[in-house]
């Protein structure tokens, strides 16, 4: 299995490459007033208005540093929620040090044994050279509340209609 690695604070995390639509350089975001702090803003991804969530802010309350390797991982909403149509709604995740993909065997991942109510999106853990790698479950990343904020249903109904 191929995973895309990135970093939050000093620790390495990973996303399954299958779930990643594309990695893009950071752009200029339109900030959303009165939105949660970890919602960085919205930007134009290939003609689609896409909200961006700052993973570092979400996990550690410190925003991502502005570096070359700080990039946006684009996820297709259809990969997270099978009820969504493919290629219409995307979610951007801002994270640091997105420069590597690693190929790891599935069985190397083990359960961390911890359930953190405030961070249900933390997944299994694997040992790699130079430390631990924890998977991020993007499906659990999008809580109902966040989903209401970022992808309101009314809009979708209108779009469908």
């Amino acid at each position: 299995m191929l995973v895309l690695t990135f970093r939050i604070a000093e620790y390495s995390y990973a996303l399954k490459a299958m779930l990643v639509a594309e990695v893009v350089p950071p752009a200029i975001y339109k900030e959303l007033p009165r939105s949660p702090e970890y919602v960085k803003g919205i930007f134009n991804y290939r003609g689609t208005i896409t909200p961006v969530v700052d993973l570092s802010m979400l996990a550690t309350d410190a925003p991502c540093k502005s570096m070359m390797s700080t990039r946006v991982i684009i996820l297709d909403l259809a990969d997270l929620d099978s009820s969504e149509p493919r290629g219409e709604k995307f979610l951007g995740l801002l994270a640091e040090n997105i420069t590597e993909t690693i190929s790891i065997v599935d069985s190397d991942f083990e359960s961390s044994g911890l359930e953190i109510p405030d961070a249900p999106w933390l997944g299994k853990v694997a040992r790699v050279d130079g430390g631990m790698l924890q998977l991020i479950e993007p499906g659990k990343l999008l809580s109902d509340e966040l989903r209401m904020v970022l992808f309101p249903k009314e809009d979708m109904v209108q779009v469908d209609g």
Partner: peptide
């Protein structure tokens, strides 16, 4: 040169992802 290298890295990432897919 650095910018080009960065872009190239990005490109290789996306390429790897696409290849996985």
């Amino acid at each position: 040169i650095t910018k080009v290298a960065d872009r190239t890295n990005l490109l290789s990432l996306n390429a790897a992802i696409e290849a996985e897919k």
